[in-house]
Design a protein around this nucleic acid. Structure first.
Lengths: 142, 142
DNA sequence: TATAACCCTGTAGCTAGGTACGGGGTCAAA
DNA sequence: TTTGACCCCGTACCTAGCTACAGGGTTATA
Protein backbone atom coordinates (compact mmCIF):
# COMPACT_ATOMS: atom_id res chain seq x y z
CA UNK A 1 0.00 0.00 0.00
CA UNK A 2 1.10 3.52 -0.67
CA UNK A 3 1.44 5.95 -3.48
CA UNK A 4 3.47 5.42 -6.58
CA UNK A 5 5.83 8.12 -7.72
CA UNK A 6 3.39 9.56 -10.21
CA UNK A 7 0.48 9.42 -7.79
CA UNK A 8 2.39 11.32 -5.16
CA UNK A 9 3.70 13.76 -7.74
CA UNK A 10 0.20 14.47 -8.92
CA UNK A 11 -1.15 14.79 -5.40
CA UNK A 12 1.23 17.61 -4.56
CA UNK A 13 1.58 19.02 -8.07
CA UNK A 14 5.22 18.40 -8.44
CA UNK A 15 7.31 16.79 -11.15
CA UNK A 16 7.97 13.15 -10.37
CA UNK A 17 11.64 13.63 -11.17
CA UNK A 18 11.69 16.18 -8.41
CA UNK A 19 10.68 13.50 -5.93
CA UNK A 20 13.76 11.52 -6.80
CA UNK A 21 15.76 14.68 -6.54
CA UNK A 22 14.44 15.41 -3.06
CA UNK A 23 15.21 11.86 -2.06
CA UNK A 24 18.80 12.30 -3.24
CA UNK A 25 19.01 15.57 -1.33
CA UNK A 26 17.81 13.88 1.83
CA UNK A 27 14.54 15.76 2.06
CA UNK A 28 12.41 12.72 1.45
CA UNK A 29 13.33 9.47 3.17
CA UNK A 30 13.85 6.50 0.90
CA UNK A 31 10.43 4.92 0.57
CA UNK A 32 9.85 1.16 0.63
CA UNK A 33 9.73 -0.63 -2.70
CA UNK A 34 7.44 -3.25 -4.10
CA UNK A 35 8.65 -6.55 -5.58
CA UNK A 36 9.63 -4.85 -8.84
CA UNK A 37 11.59 -2.13 -7.12
CA UNK A 38 8.91 0.54 -7.54
CA UNK A 39 8.73 3.21 -4.84
CA UNK A 40 5.64 3.12 -2.66
CA UNK A 41 5.34 6.26 -0.61
CA UNK A 42 3.45 6.36 2.67
CA UNK A 43 0.60 8.86 2.75
CA UNK A 44 2.52 11.07 5.17
CA UNK A 45 4.75 11.97 2.25
CA UNK A 46 2.00 14.24 1.00
CA UNK A 47 2.16 16.31 4.15
CA UNK A 48 5.93 16.31 4.10
CA UNK A 49 5.98 17.64 0.58
CA UNK A 50 3.44 20.31 1.46
CA UNK A 51 5.75 21.32 4.24
CA UNK A 52 8.63 21.56 1.81
CA UNK A 53 6.63 23.63 -0.62
CA UNK A 54 5.34 25.89 2.13
CA UNK A 55 8.80 26.46 3.51
CA UNK A 56 10.07 27.21 0.04
CA UNK A 57 7.34 29.78 -0.41
CA UNK A 58 8.59 31.41 2.78
CA UNK A 59 12.05 31.70 1.34
CA UNK A 60 13.84 28.75 2.88
CA UNK A 61 16.40 26.88 0.82
CA UNK A 62 16.30 23.11 0.55
CA UNK A 63 19.17 22.78 2.98
CA UNK A 64 17.37 24.94 5.50
CA UNK A 65 14.20 22.95 5.00
CA UNK A 66 16.13 19.80 5.74
CA UNK A 67 17.12 21.47 9.01
CA UNK A 68 13.55 22.40 9.78
CA UNK A 69 12.36 18.90 9.02
CA UNK A 70 14.84 17.46 11.44
CA UNK A 71 13.85 19.97 14.11
CA UNK A 72 10.29 18.87 13.58
CA UNK A 73 11.23 15.21 13.88
CA UNK A 74 13.46 15.66 16.91
CA UNK A 75 11.40 15.72 20.10
CA UNK A 76 14.29 17.18 22.01
CA UNK A 77 14.33 20.17 19.70
CA UNK A 78 12.89 23.40 21.01
CA UNK A 79 10.53 25.85 19.42
CA UNK A 80 13.18 28.41 20.08
CA UNK A 81 15.43 26.86 17.46
CA UNK A 82 12.68 27.09 14.88
CA UNK A 83 11.98 30.63 15.91
CA UNK A 84 15.64 31.47 15.51
CA UNK A 85 15.68 30.10 12.00
CA UNK A 86 12.58 32.06 11.14
CA UNK A 87 13.95 35.29 12.54
CA UNK A 88 17.17 34.80 10.66
CA UNK A 89 15.22 34.26 7.48
CA UNK A 90 13.26 37.45 8.05
CA UNK A 91 16.55 39.27 8.38
CA UNK A 92 17.87 37.80 5.15
CA UNK A 93 14.69 38.77 3.38
CA UNK A 94 14.93 42.31 4.66
CA UNK A 95 18.47 42.59 3.43
CA UNK A 96 17.29 41.59 0.01
CA UNK A 97 14.43 44.05 0.17
CA UNK A 98 16.79 46.83 1.16
CA UNK A 99 19.12 46.03 -1.71
CA UNK A 100 16.24 46.02 -4.15
CA UNK A 101 14.86 49.28 -2.80
CA UNK A 102 18.24 50.87 -3.22
CA UNK A 103 18.32 49.75 -6.83
CA UNK A 104 14.81 50.93 -7.45
CA UNK A 105 15.43 54.33 -5.92
CA UNK A 106 18.61 54.82 -7.89
CA UNK A 107 16.80 53.88 -11.08
CA UNK A 108 13.91 56.18 -10.28
CA UNK A 109 16.31 58.99 -9.65
CA UNK A 110 17.88 58.51 -13.06
CA UNK A 111 14.51 58.16 -14.74
CA UNK A 112 13.45 61.42 -13.15
CA UNK A 113 16.31 63.18 -14.89
CA UNK A 114 15.36 61.88 -18.29
CA UNK A 115 13.72 64.38 -20.57
CA UNK A 116 12.26 61.46 -22.45
CA UNK A 117 13.11 62.26 -26.02
CA UNK A 118 16.05 62.74 -28.33
CA UNK A 119 19.10 60.65 -29.12
CA UNK A 120 20.85 58.65 -26.43
CA UNK A 121 24.06 60.62 -26.73
CA UNK A 122 23.22 62.68 -23.65
CA UNK A 123 20.99 60.22 -21.82
CA UNK A 124 21.15 60.76 -18.06
CA UNK A 125 20.17 57.15 -17.44
CA UNK A 126 22.97 55.72 -19.55
CA UNK A 127 25.40 58.26 -18.16
CA UNK A 128 24.26 57.36 -14.68
CA UNK A 129 25.31 53.76 -15.15
CA UNK A 130 29.00 54.51 -15.35
CA UNK A 131 29.12 57.09 -12.63
CA UNK A 132 26.88 55.09 -10.43
CA UNK A 133 28.63 52.54 -8.29
CA UNK A 134 25.36 52.48 -6.33
CA UNK A 135 26.48 54.72 -3.51
CA UNK A 136 23.15 54.71 -1.72
CA UNK A 137 23.88 52.39 1.17
CA UNK A 138 27.00 52.90 3.22
CA UNK A 139 25.61 52.39 6.70
CA UNK A 140 25.47 48.61 6.86
CA UNK A 141 28.68 46.68 7.17
CA UNK A 142 29.70 43.15 7.84
CA UNK B 1 49.31 50.48 -27.15
CA UNK B 2 46.43 49.47 -24.98
CA UNK B 3 45.80 47.51 -21.85
CA UNK B 4 46.60 43.88 -21.43
CA UNK B 5 43.99 41.59 -19.98
CA UNK B 6 45.39 41.75 -16.48
CA UNK B 7 45.85 45.51 -16.59
CA UNK B 8 42.27 46.06 -17.60
CA UNK B 9 41.07 43.53 -15.08
CA UNK B 10 42.92 45.30 -12.32
CA UNK B 11 41.75 48.73 -13.43
CA UNK B 12 38.10 47.79 -13.01
CA UNK B 13 38.56 45.23 -10.25
CA UNK B 14 37.28 42.29 -12.13
CA UNK B 15 38.62 38.81 -12.70
CA UNK B 16 40.51 38.58 -15.96
CA UNK B 17 38.64 35.41 -16.85
CA UNK B 18 35.49 37.47 -16.64
CA UNK B 19 36.79 39.69 -19.41
CA UNK B 20 37.01 36.70 -21.70
CA UNK B 21 33.59 35.69 -20.56
CA UNK B 22 32.11 39.09 -21.40
CA UNK B 23 33.77 38.94 -24.77
CA UNK B 24 32.17 35.58 -25.44
CA UNK B 25 28.82 36.98 -24.31
CA UNK B 26 29.16 39.87 -26.73
CA UNK B 27 29.40 42.55 -24.04
CA UNK B 28 32.95 43.41 -24.83
CA UNK B 29 34.02 43.69 -28.48
CA UNK B 30 36.93 41.57 -29.53
CA UNK B 31 40.00 43.71 -28.90
CA UNK B 32 42.96 43.87 -31.29
CA UNK B 33 45.85 41.54 -30.63
CA UNK B 34 49.58 42.04 -30.66
CA UNK B 35 51.95 39.88 -32.67
CA UNK B 36 51.77 37.07 -30.13
CA UNK B 37 47.99 37.04 -30.07
CA UNK B 38 47.71 38.89 -26.75
CA UNK B 39 44.64 41.08 -26.32
CA UNK B 40 45.28 44.81 -26.18
CA UNK B 41 42.23 46.67 -25.00
CA UNK B 42 41.61 50.30 -25.90
CA UNK B 43 41.26 52.60 -22.89
CA UNK B 44 37.55 53.03 -23.57
CA UNK B 45 37.13 49.49 -22.34
CA UNK B 46 37.50 50.79 -18.81
CA UNK B 47 34.47 52.99 -19.21
CA UNK B 48 32.53 50.23 -20.89
CA UNK B 49 33.20 47.86 -18.03
CA UNK B 50 32.21 50.50 -15.52
CA UNK B 51 28.98 50.82 -17.41
CA UNK B 52 28.45 47.09 -17.20
CA UNK B 53 29.14 47.04 -13.49
CA UNK B 54 26.91 50.02 -12.88
CA UNK B 55 24.07 48.51 -14.83
CA UNK B 56 24.47 45.25 -12.96
CA UNK B 57 24.26 47.09 -9.68
CA UNK B 58 20.96 48.53 -10.88
CA UNK B 59 19.61 45.06 -11.49
CA UNK B 60 20.09 44.61 -15.21
CA UNK B 61 21.06 41.22 -16.53
CA UNK B 62 23.95 40.82 -18.93
CA UNK B 63 21.56 40.39 -21.84
CA UNK B 64 19.77 43.58 -20.91
CA UNK B 65 23.07 45.37 -20.55
CA UNK B 66 23.98 44.26 -24.03
CA UNK B 67 20.76 45.92 -25.16
CA UNK B 68 21.58 49.10 -23.30
CA UNK B 69 25.05 49.18 -24.76
CA UNK B 70 23.67 48.95 -28.25
CA UNK B 71 21.15 51.69 -27.53
CA UNK B 72 24.03 53.79 -26.38
CA UNK B 73 26.02 53.06 -29.50
CA UNK B 74 23.14 53.59 -31.88
CA UNK B 75 22.70 57.27 -32.68
CA UNK B 76 19.24 56.62 -34.05
CA UNK B 77 18.12 55.22 -30.72
CA UNK B 78 15.99 57.43 -28.54
CA UNK B 79 16.23 58.22 -24.87
CA UNK B 80 12.69 56.95 -24.68
CA UNK B 81 13.85 53.41 -25.33
CA UNK B 82 16.30 53.61 -22.49
CA UNK B 83 13.65 55.10 -20.29
CA UNK B 84 11.33 52.24 -21.17
CA UNK B 85 13.93 49.69 -20.18
CA UNK B 86 14.55 51.46 -16.93
CA UNK B 87 10.86 51.70 -16.11
CA UNK B 88 10.40 48.05 -16.86
CA UNK B 89 13.29 47.21 -14.59
CA UNK B 90 11.76 49.25 -11.81
CA UNK B 91 8.59 47.23 -12.22
CA UNK B 92 10.45 43.95 -12.07
CA UNK B 93 12.24 45.08 -8.96
CA UNK B 94 8.99 46.06 -7.34
CA UNK B 95 7.52 42.68 -8.09
CA UNK B 96 10.44 41.08 -6.35
CA UNK B 97 10.08 43.42 -3.42
CA UNK B 98 6.40 42.61 -3.14
CA UNK B 99 7.09 38.89 -3.19
CA UNK B 100 9.73 39.28 -0.50
CA UNK B 101 7.47 41.43 1.65
CA UNK B 102 4.77 38.83 1.40
CA UNK B 103 7.20 36.19 2.61
CA UNK B 104 8.46 38.38 5.36
CA UNK B 105 5.00 39.24 6.58
CA UNK B 106 3.90 35.63 6.55
CA UNK B 107 6.98 34.67 8.51
CA UNK B 108 6.47 37.45 11.00
CA UNK B 109 2.90 36.39 11.47
CA UNK B 110 4.01 32.86 12.30
CA UNK B 111 6.78 34.08 14.55
CA UNK B 112 4.26 36.18 16.42
CA UNK B 113 2.30 33.06 17.27
CA UNK B 114 5.30 31.28 18.69
CA UNK B 115 5.41 31.06 22.46
CA UNK B 116 9.14 30.58 22.14
CA UNK B 117 9.76 27.57 24.30
CA UNK B 118 8.95 23.91 24.56
CA UNK B 119 9.20 20.99 22.13
CA UNK B 120 8.52 21.47 18.45
CA UNK B 121 5.54 19.11 18.49
CA UNK B 122 3.10 22.02 18.58
CA UNK B 123 5.19 24.69 16.90
CA UNK B 124 3.01 27.22 15.11
CA UNK B 125 5.80 28.09 12.72
CA UNK B 126 6.36 24.51 11.61
CA UNK B 127 2.62 23.92 11.47
CA UNK B 128 2.25 27.07 9.44
CA UNK B 129 4.51 25.73 6.72
CA UNK B 130 2.14 23.01 5.63
CA UNK B 131 -1.03 25.02 5.89
CA UNK B 132 0.57 27.98 4.34
CA UNK B 133 0.36 28.11 0.57
CA UNK B 134 1.32 31.75 1.02
CA UNK B 135 -2.03 33.42 0.67
CA UNK B 136 -0.61 36.56 -0.88
CA UNK B 137 -2.36 39.52 0.73
CA UNK B 138 -5.96 38.64 1.50
CA UNK B 139 -6.69 36.55 4.55
CA UNK B 140 -9.41 34.12 3.52
CA UNK B 141 -9.11 32.03 0.41
CA UNK B 142 -8.32 28.63 -1.09
C1' DT C 1 0.10 -10.59 -27.58
C1' DA C 2 0.92 -6.19 -28.33
C1' DT C 3 1.21 -1.72 -26.92
C1' DA C 4 0.73 2.16 -23.96
C1' DA C 5 1.70 3.80 -19.67
C1' DC C 6 4.09 3.29 -16.07
C1' DC C 7 8.64 2.43 -13.25
C1' DC C 8 13.82 2.16 -12.64
C1' DT C 9 18.84 4.07 -12.98
C1' DG C 10 22.58 7.27 -14.08
C1' DT C 11 23.78 11.24 -16.17
C1' DA C 12 23.34 15.57 -18.72
C1' DG C 13 21.23 19.98 -19.33
C1' DC C 14 19.05 24.28 -17.95
C1' DT C 15 19.46 29.51 -15.85
C1' DA C 16 22.95 33.40 -14.53
C1' DG C 17 27.18 34.88 -13.92
C1' DG C 18 30.98 33.81 -13.30
C1' DT C 19 35.58 31.08 -11.69
C1' DA C 20 39.13 27.54 -12.17
C1' DC C 21 42.11 24.33 -14.45
C1' DG C 22 45.19 22.08 -17.70
C1' DG C 23 48.34 22.36 -21.27
C1' DG C 24 50.88 25.24 -23.80
C1' DG C 25 53.27 29.75 -25.76
C1' DT C 26 55.80 34.46 -24.74
C1' DC C 27 58.79 37.68 -22.62
C1' DA C 28 61.90 40.17 -19.58
C1' DA C 29 65.09 40.15 -15.89
C1' DA C 30 68.91 37.99 -13.28
C1' DT D 1 69.47 30.26 -19.70
C1' DT D 2 66.35 29.69 -16.53
C1' DT D 3 62.86 31.34 -13.76
C1' DG D 4 58.44 33.60 -13.02
C1' DA D 5 54.87 36.30 -14.62
C1' DC D 6 52.20 36.87 -18.05
C1' DC D 7 49.13 35.31 -22.15
C1' DC D 8 46.39 31.96 -25.09
C1' DC D 9 42.46 28.38 -25.64
C1' DG D 10 38.92 25.03 -24.46
C1' DT D 11 36.52 23.04 -21.09
C1' DA D 12 34.91 21.90 -16.53
C1' DC D 13 33.09 23.46 -12.33
C1' DC D 14 30.27 26.32 -9.01
C1' DT D 15 25.33 27.67 -6.69
C1' DA D 16 20.13 26.21 -6.52
C1' DG D 17 16.68 23.76 -7.89
C1' DC D 18 15.10 21.44 -10.81
C1' DT D 19 14.05 18.92 -15.53
C1' DA D 20 15.04 15.84 -19.32
C1' DC D 21 16.90 11.94 -21.59
C1' DA D 22 18.55 7.33 -22.78
C1' DG D 23 18.05 2.74 -22.21
C1' DG D 24 15.96 -0.66 -19.97
C1' DG D 25 12.14 -3.43 -17.06
C1' DT D 26 6.96 -3.98 -15.56
C1' DT D 27 2.04 -3.77 -15.60
C1' DA D 28 -2.62 -2.97 -17.21
C1' DT D 29 -5.63 -3.10 -20.81
C1' DA D 30 -7.56 -4.13 -25.59
Amino acid sequence: MGLTTSQLAQAVEINSETLRYYESRGLLPEPPRNASGYRLYPVQSVERLRFIKGAQALGFTLDEIKELLSLRANDRASKREVREQALQKVEQIEEKIDALETMRDALRHLIGQCSGDGPTSDCPILDGMTTHGIHAHSSTER
